[in-house]
Design a protein around this nucleic acid. Sequence first.
DNA 1: CCCATGTAGTTAGCCGCCTAATTATGTATT
DNA 2: AATACATAATTAGGCGGCTAACTACATGGG
Lengths: 170, 170
Amino acid sequence: MADDIDKGAPTLNQVAQQIRHYGLDADPQSVLVAVRLVAAGVMLGQAAEVHFARFGLSTGRYRLLADLEDSAGEKSPSRLAASLGVSRATVTGLVDGLERDGLVIRRPSAEDGRSAAVVLTARGATTLRELAPEHFGRLEAMVGELSADERATFLDLLGRIVRGTSALAE
Amino acid sequence: MADDIDKGAPTLNQVAQQIRHYGLDADPQSVLVAVRLVAAGVMLGQAAEVHFARFGLSTGRYRLLADLEDSAGEKSPSRLAASLGVSRATVTGLVDGLERDGLVIRRPSAEDGRSAAVVLTARGATTLRELAPEHFGRLEAMVGELSADERATFLDLLGRIVRGTSALAE
DNA sequence: CCCATGTAGTTAGCCGCCTAATTATGTATT
DNA sequence: AATACATAATTAGGCGGCTAACTACATGGG
């Protein structure tokens, strides 16, 4: 797997050919930007998965642990689902795995009988702390090719694409 | 789901706070760029999934069909796996679904007894053709906020990030 | 010629994501 | 107080990714 860097990232010519094939009039460069962006996201996502696997985690599990730590080590599944942007069912599955590995525990809520709390264990906090230097180092290195100005430009352009996309998602 | 645009995309302050929390010296802006890029990729990926679902497809199935059409409507599972950048097992699963829906058929190879061919059916080709205008239209609209110059700049910066990342994946 | 090794495809089983349905609890209305 | 509605969490089942193991076939070296 991960055979090729260009996994699924076509060239301008390939895109132009496809557009022509369907007799459309889309702008190849625009389409290329969109396709490359999606491909880059997939690629980085997989790289992150490999990275987290070295610590027995996954991106989803890491995000849950980090969110928990930002919330004083304790949060309800519903609120986790909301802040992570995933369904409650997904949180149930993630917590199942994390609890099995001893990184979090479940505790019923005292105030609300329907609710529960997911609590970060000492081991969970330790795992996060061990992970952090490499994690942030990798993220930083990822964009190390760019100058501060270029990073600012990239953030601006990316933000505008994202806003355009979500406006279009209706 | 897809509750929020900013699903999992933190602010500069949040990133800086996390870095401080672990006593690291990473550059928050760099980290922010990386995190936002991954989040954008996830978001666009999910938007694409919703789009394809309207045609009874998924991103993976669409990519397989499109790849097939680019190859004269016929290709072996192994070669599909290689060009799509997924495992052979994944191709087996995708073809199972597409065959069930009548969009492709499997045919054993005459030359090589181990091999097989996945063949695009008329219905598969029709589905692709019906999908194309909306598909490319959406991709184009996604980056519609940007001028041609800005798109070129974005492609350059994105390419450099991707190259930096894959160099780092070791 | 046979056997070892390699390659093609599938299967089994795990993970993370989803939706829909279920169960339990809280809240509000009458 | 009872009934209706809303919310919290889980469960069941599907999809698409993966790895590892298995089967079937091909091929090259002794």
